[in-house]
Each structure stands twice: as C-alpha cells, then as structure tokens.
Nucleic acid binder design. Sequence first.
DNA 1: GTGAAAGCGCTAACAT
DNA 2: ATGTTAGCGCTTTCAC
Lengths: 338, 338
Amino acid sequence: MVTIADVAQKAGVSISTVSYVMSGKRAISQDTKDRVEAAIDALEYRPHASARSLASRSTNVIGLQAPLRSGVDVHVVMEIVAGVVREARAHQYDILLLTSDDAEGLNRAAGASMVDALLVMDVESDDPRIGALRELSTPSVLIGLPQGGEALTCVDFDFEGAGALAAERLVERGHTRVALLGAPREVLDRHTSYADRLIRGFLGACTAHGVIGSVHPCPNSVEAAEVLDEVLAADPGITGLLIHNESALAHVAARAAEIGGLEVLALSPADVSRTVPGLADSIEIPAEGIGEAATEALFALLAGEPTPRVRLLPPVLVSRRDLVADAASPDEAAAESA
Amino acid sequence: MVTIADVAQKAGVSISTVSYVMSGKRAISQDTKDRVEAAIDALEYRPHASARSLASRSTNVIGLQAPLRSGVDVHVVMEIVAGVVREARAHQYDILLLTSDDAEGLNRAAGASMVDALLVMDVESDDPRIGALRELSTPSVLIGLPQGGEALTCVDFDFEGAGALAAERLVERGHTRVALLGAPREVLDRHTSYADRLIRGFLGACTAHGVIGSVHPCPNSVEAAEVLDEVLAADPGITGLLIHNESALAHVAARAAEIGGLEVLALSPADVSRTVPGLADSIEIPAEGIGEAATEALFALLAGEPTPRVRLLPPVLVSRRDLVADAASPDEAAAESA
DNA sequence: GTGAAAGCGCTAACAT
DNA sequence: ATGTTAGCGCTTTCAC
C-alpha cells in the first residue's frame, strides 16, 4: 500500500508538506506543489480513510437510515436516497447505510465515530429515535416532521399543505364530497409522519370549505380498485378523489375511468403520475428534491451555518396538460410552470 | 469521548486486557472479564471505528454499488439491498453505499481502505468495472453474470434457466407461439446482464422445442398494454406470454384477460405477482435471497473459505393456486411446495 | 515556505 | 493470565 511517506520521499519533501498540499491549509510554493502532485499521481496515492479520520476527527461519511420495509412507496424511497447520494457526492461525502433502523443503530454509528452526521428517513409521529438523536452531539436531519421533533432539523415535503391544496382544488372544481385513498393500513397504523400530515391537511381543508371528506387506507395492489368500489358504495355522492399510493394509482385511476363521473387527483412523483392515463391534475412529490434538501441542510449544520429548523418543500399543482407537455419537452414546461 | 484507556483505568487493568476481553482473542479470567465488562457498560464505551480499523487493517464495512437509476425494477433492487443489509448485519458489518457507480468509485473505496469487500449490482454484459475489480486485491462479488466476469465471484438468479423454464412450461401447456415482454428498451440497450440471459434462455428453449418465440421491450407504464396489442397484431397466433417487468405486469395481465385466450406467466418477486389477478403460473425472483446469497459469498471470500465462482439461484415455478394459498397461510403452502 | 514530531485510539506482537 | 509497547497512516501543532 502506498502511504503518505512514500509520496513524501518520492517528491523529496516532508510528510507534512504532502499533507498540506492535499488539504490546501497552508501556502506551498508552486514548485513543491507540482512535485508532490506528480508523485501522488505517479504512485496513485489514496489517503487511508481511517488514518485520516482518526487524526482529523472527521469521517466524510453520512449515516443514513432508510426504510427497506414493505408498505412504503418504493419509488419515493429510492428517489430520496438518490437525491441524498447525489448531494453527498457533490460534497465528497459517502453514505453509510445503517443496518439497524432503530435508536441503537444511531447510537452505534455516532458513538463509534463512524459518521459525521446522521440522516433519518421514515420518521413516525412519535418516534423513539428522536430522543436518541437529541442526546447525540452528532448533527442530524430528519426526513419527516414528527410531533416532538421540532427541536431537531426536519426536512420534508409539505404533505399537510399538499392535502389542503388537493382538497381546495377539488372544491374549486365543484366537488362537495371527496375522498383520500392513501397509504396501506400498515403505514397508517404506524403513524408514519407523512401519512398523518397529509390526512390532517386534507380533512382540515375539507372542513374549512364545508365539504365532506373521508380517508381510506389502500392496499399496494389491484385490490385498490375494489377499495374504490367500496368507498363509492358507502357514499355514492363522492366525485372527487385524491390518491396517494404509488402502486394503487393506476388501478384506481382505471377503475374510476370505467365508472365515470369522477375526478382523480394524484399525489406522487412526476414520473409515476405521468405514465397513468385518466388523471386530472396531479401534485408532484419531489422525492429526489427532498433527499437533496435534507442533505443540504445537513451540510449547513456541519458547516455551522444557520439552517431553518423545519424546511418543507411546497406542493405544486401540475395540470395534466403540463404533465404531457413535460414529457415532450421538459425545459419549456419547466420554464412555463416557474 | 470515552476511550479504551478510560475503560482500562476504571476496571483496573491494562488497555490490552480490555482489547482482549472485547475480541476474545485470549483467555481472560472470569473475574477480570466481569470487571472490564462492567466498566464498558458503565461508561457506555464504543470503540472508535477508525482507530480500530487503522490498527487492525479491516473496517467491517462492505462497499455496495446499487443502481439508483431509472428503468430497473425498483422493487427488486430494494429487496436485494434489504437482503444484503440483513446478512451484513448478521456478521456485524455495515454497508457503505458508494456514491459513484463507476470503476473509479470502486478504486476509490478500495484504495482508501474504506471497505473490506465490494458488492456490485446491476452489472452489464460488458462492464468496465469488471476489469477494475480484477486488478483490486479487495475481495468482491458481482450480483449478475457478465460475459467476462467468470474470473470473479458472481451470484445471481438463474435468469437463463428461468427463461427456459417459462418457455418449456408454455410449450407443455400446448402453446406454439410465445412472447417475452421484458424490461424497458433502455435496459435492454444497456445489455444488462440479467435481461440478456433471460432472453437467451427463453429463445433457446423455444428453438429446442420447435416453437416460435419473440422478445419485446416493454415500458414501465400502462402503455405496456398497448405493447401487447401490437405484439398480437403482428402475430395473432401468439397465445403464451412471459412478463418480466414489475410495473407492466398488472397492466399486461389485465389487457390479456380482456382479450382472452392467452396464458400469462409472470417473472417477478412473489409479493408482486401475488397481487396481480389473471396470472397463470409464475416464476419467483427471490430478490432478497439474491442479496443474501451474494453477501454470504462475500463473507466466505473474506474468511478464505472456498466459494463457487458462480452461484445461480434456481428458478421455481409457482402455480397460481399455491400463490393464493401462500397468501392465506404461508407455512402450509411452503411445506406443500417443498 | 518547510520540517520534525506529537498524538489520534486502537490491535497485536512481545514481554513476563 | 495479564501488562508494556510499537506501530497503523494520517493531521496538526511547534519550530525554524
């Protein structure tokens, strides 16, 4: 293995000079710098990550707890992770995917100094990890917005606002009875932060506008279509729907088209809703943007820069026409909707 | 921060004794061991990962390159990763999710001694990373089975066998013209290893049995149903179908049911095909098992144990009846099909 | 502008 | 059965 001493020797300088050339933490003559860099290239020197982190007390690694369990919208999770990864790479950081998704996993990673910071996904409204994070001196960001989490930095999509926006839109279009077909029962039962907030926003706006809104769990499968049947059987007056379930979306939309007289709004990543016919407007979940924003916030924390304790990405209503235009020419459509 | 010296002092022993108590690498009297363990608990001591890895020359971290790009079956990727994570945790390893998915990313992780081993997903038939891995002394396992990859350890599902099994099954059921609706065009164009092998197995068996088989790329959306229309328009004699595309599956199956006279076989994770009605038999992709098997192989390599250079998980045909029974009572059905 | 050397916290010889 | 100590490869004072 090539060490910094090998580089120093080859360049005819001291070890510390090599270190300073790499870090740029002190002025180096151009000549020396050139020789050192030549030696680094020639030897294909790669600093030993552990040695560096032991000496510098930082790892350039972010710990990430991501939900690999079932029930979650797999697409959304993947895109969030992709956003995290992209932003991390831009800062020369790597991602440690923590293998245990509880509070102990966070303590372990932080306690063993494996990471500089922690990113926690899929936070539940009352999550035991929140307490653990608060005790830790390791900076952290939650992707989600739990009840007692206000002491921590939280980044997420504004699900409450999205629920309200959807309800208002349906009201605007003349519907007086509306329903939210949401996550599967297991996710609702777990009181996943986003599901709770979406429901709150949706029902709140319904109440505010004096329309009747209802919420229904929805399985991740074709049976979702049957849920729609049941919902309509129970209340045939329902004409406006909001679907927040990636795997159910196409099935429910298809069934709604068969039935007729229904307006279906989707809440999903743009690339998912774009492929589903029969939708009216849709609200985009900027999944990759969430991952990016959360990671940005983490770096701000790490840099000691001021960061808002809560950042919610705003919901945007996209009309079906724009969605189609989007697919044809992304740039124009983006400019238009801006 | 609590260090090993703090523990040693509190327990009244030397630091090496503490180290040996933790590693179990030499005999320690029960009394000493008790005192050390008490001190560790009392101080909540966590060994510094970098210090340990610098001294021991191993990190207890596996580097993973996972495809976060589009086109792949997101479910399958997530389940494979879940399998990797589970198996890694069982061995006290963590996962470093590499943020660049090229050969340089592998060189960087290995060169900087960030990982003890590498796991590479989504390998293409002719992948530049194969050469990079071969140069590296870091052990690695590919999830996939590329052309020139035989020098490396490869673990995957036997897609070629699955293609053949599917074709044979369709032949058995009397079909003489069969079609494979597979991955989206972008995946086929990339010559992703699994797509290539599936096609080879499917068409090979067709030829062997003297039936006419064809292969069609399939978009990840409802338009998949239209692909089916086109395929049948081009050759109305086709009566047997194999679908290998998670997001297209439900749509194609639904359209096939409308059309009638078709037999649809699915190749997908069990929990996906289970939710789709109208399927005949299905072949399960044991996604989590792939991740597990690959990680097992990696640990065998790490331990210097002999490992087969190629391990392919065998395809199993599951009849629709068992799928349904499965959902009702997993244990019984498992026993039955065993 | 550069070098020497003292750690960072641990493991694993080499002691006894 | 336990202790002493020399590194592991780097960063960062201090010194010039």
